[in-house]
Write a protein that binds this DNA or RNA. Structure first.
Lengths: 210, 210
DNA sequence: GCCAATATAACATGTTTATGTGATTTTATC
DNA sequence: GATAAAATCACATAAACATGTTATATTGGC
């Protein structure tokens, strides 16, 4: 028996969900609430297998609710429900440990399938959400391996610069003269096309050189 | 009619896929190859709707193949096939514009459904893959909004430091005296607990202050 | 053996930064 | 209307940095 708790402010939709789930073999609704104001206590009280969580609710919204749940229970599967796939919310929800993300227009049969999927360790999401998620990945770090051909020693020195070392500190760290440090750094600047320590540091971060 | 090209080194599996797809209404296999060595030309020749791409292949592997495809065709839907869900490969594939990621053990009926889903703009992935993807999100940037309470002006100055401006350049950029720039920067250092320009820049990147 | 790249080092000079101390004006808050 | 925080500016000094030039030893590749 999969035990479900529902958070949804719209009474019609809440009732509809409850009837659907209670009317299906192997599913049961423990409780349903119209907001997340006391979500922590409620989750601890019921210990459900799955939570259906609407994103847009008055008072404490679904995202806040999710965070509160994760503070008291990292095991319960939380499926976010939303009317449309708002990029920002999707990202925030997934980052905060949502187990799935569904559009409200998901057909009843699919919804039950998704709930079951979640209890089995899956990450159900409607196809439009999955597409969003993929797009986020493509924006992420382009590993632009612009190779500036830094030598091993130069990379080492740059690393120390990034870590906030002064020339003097680098020289004693690497057991070389401070003038040698200068030489290396001059070369590094040439290769990176910069002419100050902080620019080099910035470039190291931007281009993920280390 | 959904037109498919297959890349798969195992002859049995390749034949099996071909027969499955050709034997289904609305699907047809244009060609199948055992490696990605000439993937660019082949994709340009056939212009398929969907590519099924095995990850592990001798010679040019599926990830390289994917990259090559994306250089000549950004529209074709590419579904990656793999025996098991290797975290690193999943990430790399999605980052390089894969449209979905399926385990080879996906049942035939599901596979056809997924192919169709891809052509409709969906991002089909088996549930175990989706779980992986979600886990990646949870590792990502904790938006650790460690608030150092920088004032508006201080943030502005820090931004310019990060952009490689010298004190002199900042003063003329903001129409203030260089001594004022000093004052701001001194305050910034106090708030960030650093005592050099490059440390401030590094911290700005690390803590995503800008 | 020669060449190019790298790692090492010294010396000189001017610029930029870091730090301290102090002061005035504006703005927001109680 | 007192208070606190922020923004502005000045002067001074020492430390750190940027740049140029030059030189030697080592290493790997042709």
């Amino acid at each position: 028996m999969i035990r479900v708790v529902i958070y949804e402010d719209n009474p019609q939709f809440r009732e509809g969900l409850t009837m659907l789930i209670n009317g299906s073999d192997g599913f049961s609704v423990l409780a349903s609430y119209k907001n997340c104001n006391n979500v922590s206590e409620e989750i601890e009280k019921w210990s459900p297998d799955v939570v259906l969580m609407d994103i847009n609710m008055p008072g404490t919204d679904g995202l806040e609710g999710l965070k509160s749940i994760r503070e008291v229970d990292t095991e319960v599967k939380v499926l976010m429900l939303t009317v449309f796939d708002d990029n920002k919310n999707v990202f925030e929800a997934l980052r905060n440990g949502a187990n799935g993300y569904l559009l409200k227009k998901t057909p009843p049969a699919k919804l039950l399938e998704y709930i079951q999927d979640a209890t089995l360790g899956g990450a159900p999401m409607t196809s439009s959400i999955a597409t969003q998620v993929l797009k986020m990945f493509q924006v992420i770090p382009q590993t632009k391996n612009q190779d500036y051909c830094l030598s091993e020693r130069e990379t080492q020195v740059l690393q120390l610069l990034v870590d906030g070392y002064s020339y003097k500190m680098i020289s004693s760290e690497l057991f070389i003269a401070i003038d040698t440090v200068r030489s290396h750094i001059k070369k590094i600047y040439e290769k990176l096309h910069v002419n100050s320590k902080s620019e080099a540091v910035a470039k190291a971060f931007k281009d993920r050189l280390l």
